[in-house]
Amino acid sequence: MRADDWLDRPEEIPPRESERDGEPLPRYTVKLDVFEGPLDLLLHLIKKEQVSIYDIPIARITEQYLEYLRHMEELDLTIASEYLVMAATLIYIKSKMLLPRDSAQAAEAEEEEDPRRELVQRLLEYQRYKTAAELLWSKAEREQAVFTRGRLETDDANPEVNATLFDLFCAFQRAMERLKERRELTLAREEITMAEKIAELRALLEREERLDITALFEAARSRRELLILFLAVLELVRVAVIRLVQTERFGRLLALRVRASAEIAM
């Protein structure tokens, strides 16, 4: 499958009346968001102009590139800074290629580097990954057409998915967001330390095999307490007192006691 088939590529408007009357400037309507960045746009222009990637007519491509950016401006779209950096690069290359070489330098000319070289390397590399992305997609598409057996009762009876620290961080972030929404009215300064928090968690673990971390996060009364709780959970994971699991992906985070309670007391 080619990129063009599944990406909405910009359409070129046929020449207008006025252009047929001797105004040769071609007009293009392009949508910025269909390009994945300046490299993608350049590849598109190179393909459209049917020029070789190894011998890019810099002046022509630069002109088209800038034309494209101007259109974006006319449409009042914000141009991502990456596009402007590339514009500067193109103009720089163009100017370097325009510089006359004096005879003293001519001798070294062979060793002199083509100012386009670095850009070509980047384009080629980017193009490789773009092709790889298409291939990955065709693989994923095939896999979407493949089914395994339906769920068994035992799958639900044992629904723990290993949770990662990333999940822990997400749960923490969500709790932080919610805390922001609530208005704070704490007057007395809380003086809970991390050691106290860890002791508190350990005490809870003495009684219960599993703790609902998401619920603990939600119960935190202040930003400070939430932070200390987060760090305490991290610490307990680090020293392997608890193991984090989820009952479903992006579900509630649970902490499971790893060691026997007697060992926790140590």
Partner: peptide
């Protein structure tokens, strides 16, 4: 291998 894409992708002429 990613090098396989070199041929595939080199657009232009």
């Amino acid at each position: 291998t990613i090098e396989d894409f070199e041929e595939l992708g080199s657009g232009g002429s």
